[in-house]
Each structure stands twice: as C-alpha cells, then as structure tokens.
Amino acid sequence: MNRVEHVMGFPVSLRIDDEGGGSRMDETADALFAWLREVDARFSPFRPDSEVCRYDRGELRLPQLSADLTEVLDLCEQYRIATGGAFDVRLPGRPLDPCAVVKGWSVQRAAELLTAAGARRFILNAGGDVVVSGGPWRVGVRHPEHADQLCTVLELTDGAVATSARYERGDHIVDGRTGRPATGLLSLSVVAASLTEADATATAAFAMGPEGVDWAAARPGCEVFAVDAERRVRRTAGFPVATVAA
C-alpha cells in the first residue's frame, strides 16, 4: 500500500509492505489519516475553535482539558525544564503553540494504530519526520543548504528520526531563554525509539543552539546528527548511517 495525504500543513505518506491485509489495512489507513485530521482540528494554534486556542484564551480550565492535551502540555513542560527554558511553547507575546510536541506525538500514535492492526513492515513519513517498522529502511536527511542534496542517509529497522532546521520555515525556532531565533545550528536530526521523543528532542536541542547537540546526545536512546552554523558536522557514534554497497 502507498498513500499520501496533505494533513496538518505538510504531506504525510504511508507505505505498508506486508503481504495480505487487504481491506483491513485500507480501513486502518483511513483511521490513521482521520486521526491526524482530528489532531489538526483539536490542537492547531491557528484555528480559533481548537482546544488549544480555547484553552489559551481561558475558555477552558485544566480540569476541562482532554487527556490528550493534558499529556501534550505535560510533555511540553518536561522539555522546558530539561532545556532550562530554551524550549518553551509559551513565549511572551505569542499564543500557546505546542506544535513542536504535537507533530511527533500524533504521528507516533498513528504508527501505533498500524502496529495494533497487524502491520509489521511500514514507513510513515510526516513532512520529513519518519517512523519505521520491520526494516531495514533507508531514510535520507536533506542537506540544510541544498534542497536537491542529502547530507546523510541512515538505516533504521524499527524507530524514528526527526529533523529540525531553518531551511523550510526560516528562523522559526526561538530560544525561550533569550526570545531570539535560534541560529547556532543549520539542522539537527535525532534518532529515537519513538517519534514523540525524536521530534521534541530535535526541536528542543535546536532551540538550545550548539550546546543542544551534547544535550540531545546525552538523552537515553537518542542518536544525533547535526550541522552547525559554521558547516561543521557533529555525529554521535551510534547514529545509524547506512553503509554504501560496493
């Protein structure tokens, strides 16, 4: 099965390589994309009627929040504390924006729908952040300055990889400690067991700047590939770079 839809502002592609499954996998794919559309409606900071916006305006109190939003806000707070405030979804003068956690968290949940339905070999790509199962799968990481080139290719069997960078949306990641855009890195990719961890860690580390590379590398189960503003590459020893066939 191969399927692509535009959800949450970016393309989401799903490939399932299991034999059989038929209509059951079609139904699961339907449920997966329905879940992502639901997340967009409930968590978008750009939709005035979303749960996030209603909470930010004070129309909802903590006891009234869904279990999902409560979980997301708890994760946001964990990363804020862990980064000393560099990662912060409540920047002064700006609306609440938990997207840096919501994306990875929701796509990981979508991957779990596939696993629960019996899918064993799949790749789910959400705007360049990827969850895989039953590999090996090869995943390319875009060069931070040349859109038609890759800076590395990794090989994953089960797990996730997420990249934070400046090339798609400019200097959109802000260091919450200073209130200024984070410009010390060009891109930073994190491999972890789940996309929840990989995506949030990549964004949080990027907000920290060069010091975020070591911070991310010290987190249990995380491997890192980064390019700093001076074009120097930093990579942890366990980052799963694909071998090139002779």
Rank of each mutant, 00 (worst) to 15 (best):
L185I: 11
A198M: 08
R235W: 09
A165L: 07
A110C: 05
D49V: 07
L150Y: 13
T115V: 13
T83L: 12
T201S: 14
A207C: 03
D148M: 13
V72D: 02
G9I: 06
T196R: 07
L114P: 01
A237E: 15
A246T: 14
S106W: 05
D49M: 07
A100I: 05
G176M: 05
G93P: 02
A198R: 01
W35H: 15
R234I: 12
Y79C: 03
D88V: 12
R90F: 03
C222H: 03
L65D: 00
C222E: 02
V130E: 01
G58H: 05
A116S: 08
T152S: 05
D49K: 08
V101T: 09
V174I: 15
P11G: 06
V102N: 01
H6C: 12
A218T: 14
L150M: 15
D17P: 01
P181Q: 07
R37P: 02
A67D: 14
L96C: 03
A110I: 04
V224L: 14
R232G: 12
V191M: 04
R235D: 07
I81W: 12
V101E: 04
T70S: 15
C151V: 15
E230Y: 09
A110D: 00
G179M: 09
K103T: 06
D74W: 06
R166K: 15
M1K: 05
C222W: 01
P136C: 06
V12F: 01
Q108V: 06
R15I: 13
E223G: 03
S106M: 10
L96G: 01
A165I: 07
V233Y: 08
Y79M: 09
M1A: 08
G104W: 03
S194I: 15
L60T: 06
G134N: 06
I16G: 02
D199A: 01
R177N: 10
T83E: 11
R180S: 07
A117K: 08
W35E: 07
L113F: 12
A217C: 13
A165C: 12
E51I: 12
S164L: 10
F10P: 00
T183S: 09
D97G: 05
R42I: 04
L156D: 02
G128V: 14
D228W: 14
F239W: 10
A202N: 09
F122N: 00
R232E: 15
A160R: 05
A229T: 10
H172Q: 01
L36A: 04
P240F: 04
L154F: 06
E155N: 11
T157Q: 13
W215G: 00
A193T: 13
F122Q: 00
R121T: 15
P220T: 11
E168C: 10
V107G: 00
